[in-house]
Design a protein around this nucleic acid. Sequence first.
DNA 1: GCAAACAAACCTACCAAATGGTATGTTTAC
DNA 2: GTAAACATACCATTTGGTAGGTTTGTTTGC
Lengths: 190, 190
Amino acid sequence: MSEAHRREKQPEQVRRSLLDHAARCAVEQGLGSLTLQAVADAAGVTKGGLLHHFPNKQALIEAVFEDLLGKLDEEIDRRMSEDPAEQGRFTRAYIDAFFQVTRERSGSPWAALAISTMTDPRLRELWSEWMRDRLARHETTDSQPAFRIARYAADGIWLANLTEIEGLEAGTLDELRFDLERLTKGELKT
Amino acid sequence: MSEAHRREKQPEQVRRSLLDHAARCAVEQGLGSLTLQAVADAAGVTKGGLLHHFPNKQALIEAVFEDLLGKLDEEIDRRMSEDPAEQGRFTRAYIDAFFQVTRERSGSPWAALAISTMTDPRLRELWSEWMRDRLARHETTDSQPAFRIARYAADGIWLANLTEIEGLEAGTLDELRFDLERLTKGELKT
DNA sequence: GCAAACAAACCTACCAAATGGTATGTTTAC
DNA sequence: GTAAACATACCATTTGGTAGGTTTGTTTGC
């Protein structure tokens, strides 16, 4: 620590490290009690160094959030481009993306997204806009009730996985994934 | 304020007020930035008075959480006792309870439950235990895939409602409620 | 029946630690 | 040489928590 003077300067890399570790800290301690010192330490930089990249705490938090939203966008777009069927294309990509990060489990920065969303009104707005925008874009293919329910269920599963300390079991996740697929095909019976 | 010396002492009432206002503050400011002073002020007591009822901050938070869990238990039990059909009885009560608090919207102390659950590892554990316990109790009637998916979807809807600034529209909520009911009867098609 | 004793329910005053942020110095890259 | 990329030192404020006092309610002793 505090050796950054000696090593070659790679601002982009440091910035990236700060974003990643900030997301991690937000998961572990909660966003409210997130401290600049902790993030700086985790990223191997001093607090002053951190404040050089992000003018204040709020700016850091919003940067983390936008970074994660961007990644989610990319991931979903990638999956959609590989899906041949048109109906429910967005819903499948959305669900799969969530299941992937659900499996990746702890340390996954995505959890920060949830906590942030709940806590900070500004971030709530960003998330709302993102969701409204994507839904509008795929209204013709993904607005049927079963798709909507399936997406909400994916959210719920993801939430449950965050809540469980050890995460849901892999087998359970596979079952749920399968059930959701059936749901989007009208095959799920009681 | 600070007149509690003069008024007759009603510890139970003060304790209740502290729990309620703590839940409220947690919703508004987030649990992480919840301050003892704010809670005490809101309840019309000094910080010292608060710390007489709850030895420290963590104890207060856990007390709030357990209080809310207890209310949820009562609500679900009440609904279950009024439900004639056996299959999916718990799932229906669970969904209805969540939809009710979803409709009640802001100021409802239930939102604190969500935020708390994500932030605090200890509370995560409490919630996990509660859920595991209830699921075990109703395994024979509520373990089918469609029920499980329906419960997760209810969680997701509830989460979305917290996320949206103004909350989901009443009409949208009614639709979702109707779709979930159909899902538990195997009537939901794409 | 009543005062003394005691405990519970508060309040006031205070402190040590942590935290966000500033100001300024030092090293590296171009 | 100059600007960016850091680090160091420091400050004002806030916050959780403690210590000890004061008031109210209840029980005990006689």
